[in-house]
Write a protein that binds this DNA or RNA. Structure first.
Length: 296
DNA sequence: CTCCAGGGAGCCT
DNA sequence: AGGCTCCATGGA
């Protein structure tokens, strides 16, 4: 076992691991303790989180001055990448529009960062997210891991990685339905088949300009514009991607009604411009959480 | 009981 | 391109 700590003073801008991992833009981490997911802030923000990424088990928690970690490897560079710790959050916030809703949203969750999830897990988890509450999406990914994931030993325990594309491609639709994926079951199976066969992979997406990348991503089954935007934003680092979900549509109706031009591509361009382009996805994610936390 | 959740596919015009 | 309808599941 290796252990270490990332000093917060080495990270540009504030950090909040809890809101980064529990707000529902990554579904690939889980609580390492017995405490269940709950309202943000309910546990003092010092909980241990665990994931298996690139075959390595990583556990991390935030303390007053550092992010402590335990892992099967030197997790420092991997953690910085996965948690978006390279993003200069102060600079990003500076680019946000200075209106009341965005300001309030940034004040509500200082330190929340955009994750960089491994591609396939991000893709499948957001296919599963269609018409599904945030809390339940975690459970679906947990069942996929435990039924189809490769075991990894760590600290005398066995944990399961997110399934490889071949493993989910070999699953039957009925099996996936039995694991409560509902009508998303064939989407996940067929998308896994596309990736496993090499017919459509991350290499067909990464590196292209934003709108071309989004179009390419909708080639997966169960992936429309919205899920494609989530994958570009939460896995591939397209920080300008603005997923137009029910919550951000409410925000558009309320605060930026002129941006709704009646179709996804046009509304996407308008709200992206309204949120000042380059980091529009960051600002959207803050708005999403602000709205979700203040309307329930 | 009904309504709805970080939507998308298939089919129609 | 744009507008239906259907699709599972479970908590409010």
């Amino acid at each position: 076992m290796e252990t270490g700590a990332i000093q917060l003073e080495s990270v540009p801008g504030p950090v909040d691991v809890e809101s980064t991992l529990e707000s529902g833009h990554s579904y690939l981490w889980w609580r390492a303790d017995d405490r269940t997911y709950d309202r943000l802030g309910a546990h003092g923000g010092d909980a241990w989180y665990r994931t298996v990424a690139h075959g390595e088990v990583i556990e991390a928690r935030q303390t007053e001055r550092a992010i402590e970690w335990r892992s099967t490897t030197d997790a420092d560079p991997l953690l910085r990448e996965l948690l978006g710790l390279h993003d200069d959050l102060d600079e990003i916030r500076e680019t946000a529009p200075k209106d009341a809703p965005v300001r309030a949203a940034y004040d509500a969750y200082p330190g929340m960062r955009i994750v960089r999830d491994p591609f396939f897990g991000c893709l499948v988890s957001f296919i599963c997210s269609a018409q599904m509450r945030v809390e339940r999406i975690f459970g679906m990914q947990e069942r996929l891991r435990e039924h189809y994931g490769e075991p990894v030993e760590f600290d005398d325990e066995t944990y399961y990685a997110f399934p490889e594309p071949t493993a989910l491609a070999a699953a039957t639709e009925q099996e996936l339905r039995d694991h409560k994926l509902g009508y998303r079951a064939p989407y996940v199976q067929q998308t896994a088949e596309l990736v496993a066969s090499g017919d459509l992979t991350v290499d067909d997406i990464r590196g292209q300009d934003y709108e071309s990348a989004r179009d390419a991503c909708t080639g997966f089954v169960g992936v429309g514009d919205k899920v494609a935007d989530c994958v570009l934003l939460f896995s591939l680092g397209y920080l300008e991607a603005v997923p137009l979900d029910t919550w951000i549509r409410t925000a558009i109706d309320r605060y930026y009604p002129e941006c709704d031009v009646g179709n996804y591509a046009g509304t996407s361009r308008a709200i992206r411009q309204r949120l000042n382009g380059e980091y529009a996805g960051y600002h959207q994610t803050y708005l999403f959480h602000y709205l979700r936390s203040t309307t329930e």
